[in-house]
Amino acid sequence: MPQFDTSTFLPQLFWLAIIFVLLFVIMRRHALPRISDILEARQLRITSDLEKAGGLKEEADQVMADYEKALAETRTQATALIKQAGEEMAAENTKRQQAIAADLAAKTKAAEARIAAAKDEALAGLKAVAADTARAATAKLIGIEPQAEQVQQAVAKAMGGRG
């Protein structure tokens, strides 16, 4: 086998040493730092991107929280408004009812007054008619026509407290 020809050992070892050292130096000085720089830069970029995404998410969460807060505020405001409106309406109702009641009472009073007036008038009319009738009846019965004042007094006396 050619592999065991010892005369080939020295030249192979000599060039192996030179070439391997050369490869080692190139790898160490140039190739490997470059790759590790790339990998590090990527890692850094990923980390910063993640951080950025985290910040954005926080911001979004903030916005969401603000929105929720505004929503809740609006809701309480609306509830308050509805309540207020309800109260106002109830107050209006009461007021109107009171007004109606007052109106009714006033109307009733006026009607009662009118009725009383009419009664008085009627009574007064009745007195005059009674006096007239009494004078006429007296004249017919006894032929004497009494004085109007006397008759009226008599009628009033006869009717007494009535009227």
């Binding site: 030249p11 192979q12 391997f20």
Partner: peptide, 11 residues
């Protein structure tokens, strides 16, 4: 003998 051989060439 430090000849540049085919082995060295492929290295």
């Amino acid at each position: 003998d430090l000849s540049y051989t085919n082995s060295a060439l492929f290295m």
